[in-house]
């Protein structure tokens, strides 16, 4: 469904992603793992059609991503991006205006579960509320691909269960879910495949349950093996 063909992205002389090849198939929840700055976000932005690769291409159903693929790929960036004059309601209306696969009813349900209200103003949202709003508005789309960049960032322990559940509700045979995180423990149970990114390159890709079955190795163990000391996050 989504394929990265030897994708390289350079910012000036800095190489953010290097020769990254990857095939994401429907029916799986992928965990894209790696420390901050390893290139996860840059790759996702390319797959979302927000920035262009320096070399290589990201293909959605065989065609390079772009205006058309944005209709079918729901992307949630890690940074907040809503206009500051908006309310929670305005954010939903904006998505409804631009995405045919967006359901305002689903959005209403999701913001309620996230303990937000339509009247809240973007300007006054805490970082945790903002993180929940981003997830709600992204998951209210009925897309073929969901790419959530750091969905658990800034989410307190109590809300994490709700987030995990809403994400799992969207996992389906015909959909790709890609979640990036440096909070590996959050990913252990929900992802069935893991992609490890190190210095812009793909370090490993595996079936998580098979790895546990064959070697008794968890995602976190493998993470430590790959990144060693540098992967240890605060």
């Amino acid at each position: 469904m989504l394929e990265s063909r030897s994708v390289t992205k350079k910012f000036g002389s800095k190489v953010a992603v290097e020769q990254l090849s990857l095939v994401l198939e429907p029916g799986h929840v992928y965990a894209m793992l790696g420390p901050n700055g390893s290139g996860k976000t840059t790759w996702m932005k390319m797959a979302a059609g927000l920035i262009k690769p320096t070399e290589g291409a990201v293909l959605f159903k065989g065609s390079p991503v772009g205006i058309e693929s944005r209709k079918h790929i729901a992307y949630m960036s890690t940074e907040p991006y809503f206009y500051s004059w908006m309310t929670v309601k305005d954010v939903g209306r904006y998505y409804r205006d631009f995405f045919e696969d967006f359901s305002y009813d689903d959005y209403k349900g999701l913001i309620k579960r996230m303990e937000l209200t339509e009247e809240m103003r973007i300007r006054t949202l805490s970082s945790g509320m903002m993180a929940k709003l981003k997830i709600a508005v992204t998951l209210a789309r009925d897309s073929e691909v969901y790419m959530l960049d750091e969905p658990f960032n800034g989410i307190d322990l109590l809300a994490r269960d709700e987030i995990r559940e809403s994400i799992l509700e969207h996992a389906a045979e015909n959909k790709v879910l890609l979640l990036s995180s440096h909070l590996v423990e959050e990913m252990e149970a929900i992802a069935d495949r893991a992609v490890f990114i190190k210095n812009g390159r793909k370090a490993d890709e595996c079936d998580v349950e098979d790895m546990r079955n064959a070697k008794g190795v968890s995602m976190a163990d493998r993470y430590r093996e790959i990144y060693g000391h540098e992967g240890v996050q605060a």
């Binding site: 029916g27 799986h28 929840v29 995990r164 799992l168 149970a189 929900i190």
Partner: peptide, 13 residues
């Protein structure tokens, strides 16, 4: 999958 908070493929297994 939702009850246990696990991947649907894992639940199917």
């Amino acid at each position: 999958a939702l009850i246990y908070g696990i991947n649907p493929n894992t639940a199917a297994r």
